[in-house]
Design a protein around this nucleic acid. Sequence first.
DNA 1: GTCTATATTTCGATAGAC
DNA 2: GTCTATCGAAATATAGAC
Lengths: 222, 222
Amino acid sequence: MEEAVRKMRIKAGRRTDIRRAREEAILAAAEKVFAEAGFGGATMQLIADMAGMPKANLHYYFATKEDLYRRVVENIFTIWLKAADCFDNAADAAAGIGGYIEAKMEISRRHPFGSKVWASEVMHGAPVIQDYLETALRGWTEGRMRAIQRWIDEGQIAAVDPRHLLYMIWATTQHYADFGHQIETLNAGKPLTDRQWRAAIDSVREIILRGIGALPPAPGKP
Amino acid sequence: MEEAVRKMRIKAGRRTDIRRAREEAILAAAEKVFAEAGFGGATMQLIADMAGMPKANLHYYFATKEDLYRRVVENIFTIWLKAADCFDNAADAAAGIGGYIEAKMEISRRHPFGSKVWASEVMHGAPVIQDYLETALRGWTEGRMRAIQRWIDEGQIAAVDPRHLLYMIWATTQHYADFGHQIETLNAGKPLTDRQWRAAIDSVREIILRGIGALPPAPGKP
DNA sequence: GTCTATATTTCGATAGAC
DNA sequence: GTCTATCGAAATATAGAC
């Protein structure tokens, strides 16, 4: 009888649903463990415990530890690229760059583990996602640099180096995820409140936008 | 006879010289391996190979892997703090903050491994140097925030949040070390030249200084 | 698909000759 | 102080019952 039920479920496509749900649970646990312990420090046992299943099940869904890790990094990269939309559909430079900063800060807040895994991967020489850097990221970067250069040519912003402006945005926004523990320690050991996050986002956006001449000089400054 | 020579050397203080030289060789190798593989991914064998000595010798100079790691992190932190001098002995805000940015960029260039080890340590929750964060770093930060606030009160710079300004400087300058591999990949796979480093430093310093109103608006911008 | 038990490998650390 | 050989712990991965 149970056999019949199982076959019906397979026919109805439930099997892939279950598979997807289990995979997502494993991936969420893995993202956290990889972020907090690094690839070498993470163990399949820790990930299994956090996902609430025996270790052997992980190997049923992901052949090796490295396969699992690769999927985690790929997930983050996808989220990363989506934030580019703000860039393209913007009315002007201030809206485009400001919106991108805001979107990146929001990702740092919502996906701190993913950001850390990405940072760790790049810091160790990108052994797993070097191809992404050379293809997808390089292409994305060149496109955005052209957009920035266009704003410069139109006189919307100062003649900054588009490449280093992008690096500054990446560095600053991701810092709030990657160095979140340090920021929390310097905040009396407490996570940033909603208000403090708002202040952080505004600070970052205003200093950068003013720094590239997309905002008027600060009030009270001649 | 050799015994006599050895005792003479000990009497002359050579023994500690040898010890120091060996320790420094091990620390240099460890810094590189920890940076490239993370604490968990690093092995004593790899460090020994890079230092050109058998694995057992490492345990003769450093009792455990964690002891060795702790020394590496402490070394970096010391270099970090020295860069603060530019901050204190400055004539005005632009010189103080600009000099600090320049010093931090120089450290990113000269000590990329150390920066990565520090980043990795903080990303993993600072299990080894949490006490440094809560004492030395917290004290240092509060002092610098007061200096920045003074410049704000004197009208030298805009009324930015000193804390987030510091975070931006840390994030941006350390990015050139921690994400050096990504930057190199986006630079056609080649390390930055002297000229490119100069451009990077100038870009960072100018955007930030202009962003806080320590520089006049960019030329050509109303 | 799930789980227990285990095979195999790897690594940190040490013993002991030199 | 240095080095070879090795122990013991821990981790990845798998075998095989259910």
